[in-house]
Design a protein around this nucleic acid. Structure first.
Lengths: 229, 229
DNA sequence: TTGGATACCAATTTTGTTTTGGTTTATATT
DNA sequence: AATATAAACCAAAACAAAATTGGTATCCAA
């Protein structure tokens, strides 16, 4: 009654039966299909045979499975590493600057639309404090706060969240050589004028100038950083 | 509400008592101090009075509190919400589209520089598969994969990480209205031609066209999304 | 040897309970 | 009248217990 060809035919039969079943049911929003125990009962096959059929479909890339989670149609979601530490480990200062140059000018453009007088007042305070800074640490604190205030002013919580993530990675990334420079920021430090140009542009609702100013500023930072001045 | 001198003297007494207590105990390494109910008993003060004293210290920035968590010494950690769920809760579809329009065109520009032939081959496969899609679910899977392949091709792990974060938020955000559209993507769906224009630009190393194509594509998506209904 | 039923495992999700800061209300107390 | 106290209640968060789920091994039968 049974031979090898009949066996494979039987298995293929279950696979096609499963294919039909999957095509007919409309699965949940996340593409999850019933647990194996239910599915085997619904199809009238043993769990062992069902799993063989699922193995085939998984090998074809039509579905993916995970213990405790379930079985899902489509391709396995790629491991999205939102973990700051993991990101910082794989990244480097050059990438951080690239990412800043991608994101911050556009965030700044949005901020020029939506910044409130309070936002701008806080930006101006950051400018003043950063000029008064007695140490590089203080300067960086006010610089960081200025950039974040601009991101806040965009009034887009998602962009702000992405900015924060980027910032956290920036802090976590290993920068190798550090401030060998003069102990305190000199009055003619390039950032001062650039920062003021940016805030001016935001205050005057000059969208293009705001974005361009931020881009120019970050490119200067990048150049100073990578060229070793 | 103003206090008489006698009242403020009393309250200050509790505040100083609390200060002494906090100086003497060695708190856990997370800076957490005992719950209010314990603390009030330990100090022999009613919870109401203790809370007034804690209000003072909190206003001074010496500690911060959060329901369910507890009371902690030091300054409240800057709420850098890299947490996807928290981000999704505060965000909305409009912000997601804005953020995509900010990030993806620039990522696409970078990809046009650095994409390998293998990257481009995978993009082309995504194009083909998305055209063959029999359901919206399948289409979206290949659409998502195309966009991520482009992000991968930028060869910037940080930008890729930010892209993944954005994508995770996109999936988690509540979209309200759902597919009322035809059961499967029609052959003249706008995305097909737009996607192909983007991949063509990347393949020909046309940096500007790649960025512009992606921007145009996402703006079309945004328009379709927000205008209708 | 093959297939089926069963039990078990570890990862994960779901559910329920406890804890915690915040708030209100009734009752003394002065 | 003003205010402190105690108690109860709330929602957010943490914590713990239970139920699911894919993966695997075992035993049994055909």
């Amino acid at each position: 009654m049974l031979n090898s060809s009949a066996d494979s035919h039987l298995e293929k039969g279950i696979v096609t039966q499963l294919r039909g079943y999957l095509a007919q049911i409309d699965l949940a929003d996340d593409g999850r299909l019933p647990p194996e125990r239910e599915l085997s009962a619904a199809l009238g096959v043993s769990r062992t045979e069902l799993r063989k059929a699922l193995d085939v479909l998984e090998a074809e890339g039509q579905l993916w499975r995970h213990v405790g989670k379930g079985t899902f149609m489509g391709s396995r979601p790629l491991d999205t590493f939102a973990d700051i530490a993991a990101l910082a480990r794989r990244s480097n200062p050059a990438e951080v600057m690239r990412a800043r140059i991608v994101m911050e000018p556009e965030i700044c453009r949005a901020a020029a639309f939506t910044a409130t007088p309070e936002d701008i007042a806080e930006m101006r305070m950051c400018l003043t404090r950063s000029r008064q800074a007695e140490t590089w640490r203080q300067y960086e604190a006010w610089d960081t706060r200025l950039h974040r205030t601009i991101a806040e002013a965009s009034q887009n919580t998602l962009l702000l969240g992405l900015f924060d993530t980027l910032n956290a990675v920036r802090r976590a990334v290993t920068w190798g050589r550090l401030r060998t420079e003069p102990v305190k920021p000199l009055p003619d430090h390039h950032s001062f004028a650039e920062h003021e140009a940016i805030v001016d542009a935001i205050e005057h609702r000059d969208i293009a100038a705001a974005a361009a100013g931020m881009r120019a500023h970050l490119q200067t930072v990048e150049r100073k950083l990578l060229d070793r001045q």
